[in-house]
C-alpha cells in the first residue's frame, strides 16, 4: 500500500514514513499543496494523508482538486484543528476520515487499512484465495493453516496482486507499490521478490503475463 503524506513538519513527516513502514505501508512525503497536486496527478496512491495548515494553503484545497478529477483515492485528514465544525467541513469536502493531532500510530494505520479496504469494496479484512489466508491488519499469511513468513516486500507484492485476482499489474505499477521515491530499485529486484513469493505460496499462484506483467489467477478452486 502506497500512501501520500502531505505534512510540512519535518519530524512528523519523517515519523509517518518510518511508522507507516512498520505497518507495511510505503509513504511518500510532500510538504506543500503544490507538490501534492502534481504528485497526485502523476501517481496512483492507495490512500492519502493530508494536513490542513500548509505553507501554501490548506490540504482541503488539494482534496477538492483530486475530487474534482473524480479521483476516489481514500483521504485521511490529519490536523491540529479538530473542532467539530472543522471535521464536518473536512468530511463534507470529500475526506473519508479525520484524525486530530496528536494521534496514535496504530490507530492511524488501522483506519488507513479500513479506508483502503472500503474503497476496494470489501467488507472483510481477510483475503481467502485457494488455500491461502491473508490478513491485512496483522499481515499474517497462512497456507493450509500453516503460517508463512513473508518479507515486507513479498507481502506488499502479494497484497497488490490479491486485491483484484485476474487483473494484470505491470512491472512499474508493482514497483510503485513496493518502493517509495527514495528507495533504489535493483534492475531485477522485482523478479527476485516474485520468485521468493512463488516459493512460499505456490509456484502457479503468480502467473507471468508475457510483456504485460503479473497476476494472480482468478479461479478460486
Amino acid at each position: 500500500m502506497r500512501i501520500l503524506v502531505l505534512e510540512d513538519d519535518p519530524v512528523l513527516s519523517d515519523g509517518l514514513v518510518s511508522g507507516l513502514s512498520l505497518h507495511g505501508m510505503i509513504a511518500d512525503c510532500v510538504a506543500t499543496c503544490g507538490d501534492a497536486v502534481s504528485i497526485f496527478d502523476a501517481t496512483q496512491y492507495s490512500a492519502a494523508i493530508l494536513d490542513l495548515m500548509l505553507p501554501d494553503g490548506s490540504g482541503l484545497d488539494v482534496l477538492s482538486h483530486i475530487r474534482a478529477r473524480d479521483d476516489a483515492t481514500p483521504v485521511m485528514v490529519l490536523t491540529a484543528i479538530d473542532a467539530v465544525a472543522d471535521r464536518i467541513a473536512g468530511l463534507d469536502r470529500g475526506a473519508d476520515d479525520y484524525m486530530g493531532k496528536p494521534f496514535d500510530l496504530g490507530e492511524l494505520a488501522a483506519r488507513l487499512r479500513v479506508m483502503i479496504r472500503r474503497a476496494a469494496g470489501r467488507a472483510s479484512a481477510t483475503f481467502v484465495w485457494r488455500d491461502l489466508t491473508i490478513e491485512l491488519s496483522s499481515r499474517l499469511v497462512a497456507r493450509a493453516g500453516v503460517a508463512l513468513n513473508l518479507s515486507r516486500r513479498e507481502f506488499a507484492l502479494l497484497e497488490a496482486l490479491i486485491e483484484r485476482p485476474g487483473r494484470v499489474l505491470s512491472r512499474s505499477q508493482l514497483e510503485a507499490r513496493l518502493y517509495g521515491w527514495n528507495e533504489e530499485i535493483g534492475s531485477n529486484a522485482l523478479e527476485v521478490h516474485v520468485h521468493n513469493l512463488r516459493a512460499k505460496i505456490g509456484r502457479d499462484a503468480v502467473e507471468t503475463v508475457r510483456g504485460l506483467g503479473y497476476r494472480i489467477r482468478e479461479d478460486r478452486a
Binding site: 513538519d9 512528523l12 515519523g15 511508522g19 490542513l52 495548515m53 491540529a80 493531532k101 496528536p102 500510530l105
Partner: peptide
Amino acid sequence: AYAAHELRTPLAGLKTQVQVAMQAP
C-alpha cells in the same frame, strides 16, 4: 487554529517518533 497547529504538530511528531522507536525492529 494557528496556535493549535503550532502546539500540536510537534507533539504529534514526538508521539509518532516515540511509537516508531518502540516498535522499531
